Computed example of a mutant assay.
Amino acid sequence: MVSQAQIDTRIGAELAYGTEIENLGIGANAEFGVLDNLSISPSFIYYLPKEESFITVNWWEINGNVNYYFLQDEGFQVYGLGGLNYTNISVDADIDFGEFGNFSSDTSDGRFGLNLGAGANLDLDSNIMPFAELKYVIIDGGQLVLAAGVKFNI
């Protein structure tokens, strides 16, 4: 059964896992209802730095998604999502050659991509709403992101 209730404005926090960086991330998100079954949902995810021998990788992403709710039942909401992604990756290398000195180098790159995915909210009839989301970022190499967290109605 589909309900035509206006989507509330929400802010939240999430934990995420990215398959390309193979690391956990922490993030913040928001959701702004624009129609009965449509919302705009910006988010930010910062992945924990990944260190491998003398290289450190820092990775973060900004997303601007549109969520389309195709199920808004009592206590449960399911949506599809699509949107834009900006991913920034920086790599720092620091090699100590002992008495021969050190070698340091850093580089960074930012890319735009597209998000496609789905999510679900668990409506507990309170201001706290747990959620889970799965999206694929279409970008060089691609990345599948699994996120879960809570949204707060404001």
Rank of each mutant, 00 (worst) to 15 (best):
N37C: 11
Q72M: 10
S39K: 02
L38V: 14
E51V: 02
N29R: 15
N85F: 11
I55H: 04
L81W: 15
K50S: 02
L81P: 13
T56N: 00
G75V: 01
L84A: 14
I26A: 14
K50V: 06
F54G: 09
I89R: 00
P42Y: 02
Y69D: 05
Y79H: 13
D73I: 05
Y79C: 10
I62M: 08
S39I: 07
W60L: 14
N37G: 14
Y46P: 00
Y68M: 06
F70S: 05
D36A: 15
V57I: 08
L35D: 12
N37S: 13
I26N: 07
F76A: 09
G75R: 03
S41P: 07
T87Q: 12
N67Q: 06
W60F: 14
A30W: 10
N37I: 10
Q77M: 15
E52I: 08
E31G: 11
Y46C: 00
G27L: 02
G33Y: 07
G25D: 13
V78D: 05
E52G: 08
S39H: 04
S41A: 11
N29D: 15
S43D: 04
G82T: 13
L24I: 05
V34F: 07
G83E: 11
I26H: 08
S53P: 07
N58P: 01
W60Y: 12
P49W: 00
P49A: 01
